[in-house]
């Protein structure tokens, strides 16, 4: 008994603080560091002024001007086609701009933290885009921030399709601005410069968001051919991103889970 008491006097303090700190760290782990990202959100504007803060306005002027011209052409075309196909209109996309306040905390991960969260209706698995195309998807949400897994991360998988021929596959990240697309079956007709977009059978990503261009092909790769895809969104130099608030329709998910 005396031995135990002496042991406790010697090490009890250390044991207590050790267990307490592990419990606190475990709590932070369970909440996915929401405390840290919230702190970052609250102090960010005061001490790290972003010199490119006018990007948002800039995008609205030049890029949107350019794109709106194309949209007009496509819309008229689309309306005609809709009349022919008796297409039922789905709800239009609600897009929210977001500023990037945090980058990957490690050389291997490709994640960003953005400054909008569940207060503005962000939920996990929403799609994040930028000028140029797909950027990633939301993985964790706190009241004012959310974490986005970029498509260039090793853990990212995006169902993709070649827009010219319709070949299906998925794109794996490689920690660079070039991703690797694996096709599901043997394909013959893939050319350098072909545009890749999100697949319409993906469970997370809505169809027809541009991802990138084919820059190299390995047709003879043994299980299925592979292509290297250069992402059109500037993954390495992101300042602002756009979050699509419309979740992928649950009906499609249900149908796909049944398959």
């Amino acid at each position: 008994m005396k031995f135990l008491y002496r042991w406790w006097q010697k090490y009890g303090n250390q044991l207590f603080w050790g267990i307490l700190s592990i419990l606190v760290a475990w709590q932070i782990y369970l909440t996915q560091g929401s405390f840290i990202s919230e702190t970052l959100y609250h102090i960010y504007p005061s001490w790290l002024f972003n010199p490119q803060i006018d990007r948002e306005a800039l995008y609205q002027q030049s890029t949107i001007q350019e794109l709106s011209n194309k949209i007009v052409i496509l819309e008229t075309q689309n309306q005609n086609l809709k009349k022919i196909a008796n297409y039922i209109d789905k709800s239009s996309n609600k897009l929210v701009p977001a500023r990037i306040i945090g980058r990957s905390p490690d050389a291997w991960w490709q994640v960003i933290t953005i400054d909008i969260g569940s207060n503005k209706g962000i939920k996990p698995n929403l799609v994040v885009m930028s000028v140029g195309g797909l950027v990633g998807r939301v993985t964790d949400v706190t009241p004012n921030t959310s974490r986005v897994l970029l498509i260039s991360d090793y853990n990212s998988r995006v169902g993709a399709t070649l827009s010219r021929t319709g070949y299906q596959g998925f794109i794996k990240g490689q920690s660079t601005h070039i991703g690797l697309m694996e096709f599901y079956a043997k394909v013959g007709d893939v050319k350098i410069g072909d545009v890749v977009k999100t697949s319409n059978i993906s469970t997370i990503f809505p169809p027809d968001i541009p991802i990138g261009k084919v820059i190299a092909i390995d047709i003879n790769k043994s299980p299925a051919p592979e292509a290297q895809i250069e992402f059109t969104a500037p993954i390495d130099f992101l300042d602002w991103v756009i979050v699509d608030l419309v979740e992928k329709s649950p009906l499609i998910d249900v149908l796909q889970n049944k398959k």
Binding site: G18, S21, A25, W26, Q32, I36, P105, D106, W109, L149
Partner: peptide, 24 residues
């Protein structure tokens, strides 16, 4: 022991900022 406890705590915090795999 103090070092290992600190390592586990920091690893958990670092993982909370990234994801569970690969663990720090």
């Amino acid at each position: 022991w103090q070092s290992i406890v600190a390592a586990i705590c920091l690893g958990l915090i670092w993982d909370s900022l990234t994801g569970f795999f690969p663990s720090h």
